[in-house]
């Protein structure tokens, strides 16, 4: 049953078998994708034709490696820029929201807090279309009434950033709030008594205390933005992000080039996850 209780052989081995199958189920698609990135074949599948690095470095007529493929490289660049902008802005906004709801008192606090949670339970597609519609309505209004054309209100890089920010900020807020709840206000009060101003207290006492939460929330926000598809799809302008570009390629048939990109993504996100984990582990030990 559990560690401390005796259990029959069938139960023990049956259970172990189930969990092993589960992990196999979990990792098989990722492993096969990585392995086939090195297969010397023009089609992402078996049989194994030998080892090659062509899908990373080749620059031939029928085989273009990732590092020579302008379409995917520029999509990758757009995605990185988006993710950096979104994670920085959401980190600032989410942290401000956490301070607001944890430390300030004002009328209608509860309904506003409830409202700030809703972006996480609204399907991403709906956030995407409603922001698209509203920005379009606003854009038309400005153009008709004041004759000004506002770039940001058309599907574009910054509209994608706004769309992703709208729900990633809630995530940051929850993570930062959780840590802020455990904060001892005596530390702030001591600093204030010793003559620090409120901004100084936040900068010198509270922010350093929140650092692990900020790093954790920031890296997850980065990944959430980098991988986002549903909301982005509707707000995208001419600059395609990597998930959307990959989707179009996968839908229309694929080459091991996709595997090579997937390999790079799997390795780099696993590394990022590992660094994030070690950082939080170290913090726990302190």
């Amino acid at each position: 049953m559990i560690r401390s209780l005796p259990s029959g052989k069938t139960y023990r081995y049956g259970y172990l078998l189930y969990v092993s199958f589960f992990y196999l189920f979990l990792f098989s698609p990722l492993l096969i994708t990585c392995v086939l990135a090195f297969n010397d074949s023009n089609f992402p599948g078996l049989p194994w034709e030998g080892f090659t690095l062509d899908w990373f470095f080749a620059d031939e007529q029928y085989r273009t490696g990732v590092f020579h493929d302008d379409r995917n490289l520029s999509a990758l660049w757009v995605s990185l820029q988006t993710a950096i902008a979104v994670s920085l802005l959401s980190l600032i906004l989410g942290t401000m929201a956490a301070f607001l709801f944890e430390q300030e008192r004002f009328p209608f606090k509860q309904p506003l807090f409830f409202l700030s949670l809703t972006p996480l339970v609204i399907p991403g597609v709906i956030l995407g279309i409603s922001i698209l519609l509203a920005s379009n309505t606003a854009g038309l209004y400005f153009e008709e009434h004041w004759g000004i054309d506002i770039e940001i209100l058309r599907p574009s890089f910054w509209l994608v950033v706004l769309g992703q920010m709208s729900f990633i900020s809630t995530f940051v807020m929850l993570v930062v709030s959780a840590r802020l709840k455990k904060f001892d206000p005596a530390l702030e009060e001591a600093a204030l008594n010793l003559g620090a101003t409120r901004p100084e207290v936040i900068r010198l006492i509270t922010i350093p205390y929140l650092k692990p939460a900020l790093i954790g929330a920031g890296s997850v926000a980065f990944l959430m933005s980098f991988e986002n598809f549903n909301t982005t799809l509707f707000l995208i302008g001419s600059d395609t992000t990597l998930p959307v570009s990959l989707y179009l390629q996968v839908r229309d048939g694929s080459t091991p080039l996709i595997n090579a990109i997937a390999f790079i993504l799997i390795v780099s996100t696993s590394l990022l996850a590992l660094i994030n984990l070690l950082a939080s582990q170290r913090h726990k030990d302190e």
């Binding site: 698609p29 990722l30 994708t33 991988e227 989707y247 799997i266 996100t269 696993s270």
Partner: peptide
């Protein structure tokens, strides 16, 4: 537990693509 989380750090599209190949 950590091993359980790893695949989900990778983009949904990559995971679906893996299943398509399989």
């Amino acid at each position: 537990t950590i091993l359980l989380l790893v695949p989900f750090w990778v983009s949904e599209l990559v995971r679906i693509y893996g299943w398509m190949i399989l």
